[in-house]
Design a protein around this nucleic acid. Structure first.
Lengths: 261, 261
DNA sequence: AAACGTCGTTTGGGTAGACCGAACAATTAA
DNA sequence: TTAATTGTTCGGTCTACCCAAACGACGTTT
C-alpha cells in the first residue's frame, strides 16, 4: 500500500442508467419501510412496468422480500455487511476497546472510519451516563465538524483534505463549527501536535467530544475512537487530560492488535 | 397480515439485464476480497468498458471503494443491513436471549429467520464450551436439515413447504438427513406436538441441536432459537428435557417482547 | 533508457434491450 | 355489480448498453 492516493470527485465517467434506476429504488425502499410498485413508479417518474422488472431482478437475486404487494429490503445485505466489516481487520478489537471506554468513562464511545470523504460509524457503546445521539452504525457524517472526523483529517494529505472540502464544503451547524478552510488546517495542525481531536459543540449544541486517530504502520488512517458527553461533564482536568488519555490509549491498543499490522 | 401467502418460485417475469450484470459484479466482489476491472471482465465474460461503467455507477453511489486499481465493497451495506435488522423488530430481544442461552448452557446458541425458502442466521453466541461451526451471521442454509429450519417449517402451510422442496429439493448431508418428503412431513408433525425441533447429526456429523420456533400472535413464523453441541454432551435428560425447555422458554420471551406483538 | 506488458480509462457505433403505455388480472371498496 | 386500486404482462420504439479498439499511465524488463 505505502502511499495512499485517494480521490473524491473527478470528471464524471460513463455510468449505466438502468443500474442507477435500481439503486434509486433500493434507496427509496431504504428510506421508507417497504413500498409497492405504484408508489415507487410515481416517486421515481418511471412506468409501472419498468419498476416491476427492476424489482423482479432484485427479487430473483434475493435482494428483496415480498409481503403481499409490498416489497422490502432483504437480509442479504446482512451477509454483505458482515463480510465488509470482517475485512476491515480490526472490528473485534474495536468492539472490545469501545466497550471498555464506555464502561470506564460512563460516556458514549464510538469508532468511525472514512469512506468517500465522510465518516462512517462502525460501532458505538453507551456508558451508564451516556447521552443519546442521532448517530447509528452505518451512518455517514461530515468530517470537519466532529472529533472523529478531524482526528482522521489531521493525518490525510493536504490535497485530499482539499478535495473533500471541494466536494462537501464546510457547512456550519453551531456557532463553533469550523467553516473556513484556513481555520480547519490550523486546527488539524494542533491535532497532530496534541495527538487527539476536540469537538467543542461544533456539531451539536451542548455536546463535547474527544477523539484519537487509529493509524497504520505506514501512516494510513484506519479510523478514530471517541468519547462524547454533555458539556457540563466535559470540563476541567477530565476534559483536558483524563478522557484524552483514555481515547489515545484505546487507539494505540487497536493499532497494535489490528489484523494487518 | 392474518394469513401468510408466500411463494418461492414461479413463471419467470421479465428482468433487467444490466442490473443482473451489476449484481453479478457485486457477488464476485463479495466472494473475492476486491478485484480489478480486467479480472472482473474476464470472469464474467464482459468487455472491460462495460465493467468499468458498471463499477463507475456503483462507485458514484458509494457502494464501492477504490484502493488504487482495486475495487471493493463499501460500508454502505452496513447501513442497509442495520436498517433491515432493526425492522425485524425483535433483534434486541434476540440478542439478549441468545446470549443468556449460551451462557446458561455453555453451548452454541443461534437465532435464524427464513427468507426465500432458506434459513438466514441473524445472531449467534458461544458458551464457554461451545463448538465451532461454519455458520455466520447473514449466511443462508437449507431448512430441512437443521433444527432451526425444521422448527420454522413445522409452522408453515403445507403448500409453502411443498414449494420450498420443489425449489431446493432435500439434499442429504449425513446418513440421518431427512431426504424424503413424507418423512419430513411426519417429522414436522412431531415437532408441532412436541413444541421443539431436533437435529440429530442431520447436517454435520457429531453435532446435535434443539430449536424452538418463535411465533407471532397470528401464527406467523418470526424465526427460531437453537442450541448446538457435540453429540457426546447432547444426551440423556439434558438433551431430552433440560436444553429443550431452555430454548422453548427463550422463544417465549422473544415472542412476548417482540416489538410488534 | 527504451521497449514491452499490463493495467484502467475513454470513445464511437451497432443493435440488443430498457423503457413506455396500454391492456389485463386480481383485490378491495363503494 | 360496479368502480377504483393494485400488480402484472406484453408489443413496439428508440435509447443506451455493450463491444471493440485505441489511449494513457505505470511498472518491469532487457
Amino acid at each position: 500500500m505505502g502511499e495512499q492516493h485517494k480521490q473524491v470527485s473527478e470528471a464524471e465517467p460513463r455510468t449505466v442508467g438502468a443500474v442507477q434506476t435500481t439503486l434509486d429504488i433500493i434507496d427509496l425502499l431504504h428510506q421508507r419501510d417497504g413500498a409497492g410498485v405504484t408508489e415507487l413508479s410515481e416517486e421515481l417518474d418511471l412506468s409501472k412496468g419498468t419498476v416491476h422488472s427492476h424489482l423482479a431482478t432484485l427479487y430473483k437475486n434475493e435482494y428483496l422480500i415480498k409481503n403481499g404487494d409490498e416489497y422490502n429490503l432483504s437480509l442479504r445485505y446482512l451477509h454483505l455487511a458482515e463480510t465488509v466489516r470482517d475485512r476491515l481487520g480490526f472490528y473485534d478489537v474495536v468492539r472490545e476497546e469501545v466497550d471498555e471506554l464506555a464502561a470506564e468513562s460512563g460516556e458514549l464511545s464510538q469508532f468511525a472510519t472514512e469512506e468517500h470523504g465522510r465518516a462512517v460509524y462502525i460501532y458505538k457503546a453507551k456508558g451508564d451516563k451516556a447521552v443519546e445521539t442521532a448517530s447509528s452504525v452505518g451512518k455517514r457524517e461530515f468530517l470537519h465538524c466532529i472529533s472523529l472526523g478531524k482526528a482522521m483529517l489531521a493525518h490525510y494529505s493536504e490535497s485530499y483534505v482539499d478535495e473533500i472540502i471541494d466536494e462537501y464544503g464546510l457547512p456550519g451547524f453551531t456557532d463553533t463549527t469550523v467553516t473556513s478552510r484556513d481555520d480547519l488546517f490550523e486546527n488539524l495542525a494542533e491535532i497532530r501536535e496534541r495527538g487527539y481531536a476536540i469537538d467543542n459543540e461544533e456539531r451539536i449544541d451542548g455536546l463535547r467530544c474527544v477523539a484519537a486517530p487509529v493509524l497504520h504502520n505506514d501512516g494510513t488512517v484506519l479510523g478514530a475512537v471517541s468519547l462524547s458527553g454533555p458539556s457540563s461533564r466535559m470540563i476541567g482536568e477530565r476534559f483536558d487530560e483524563e478522557l484524552p488519555s483514555m481515547v489515545v490509549r484505546a487507539a494505540n491498543v487497536i493499532e497494535i492488535n489490528s489484523q494487518y499490522s
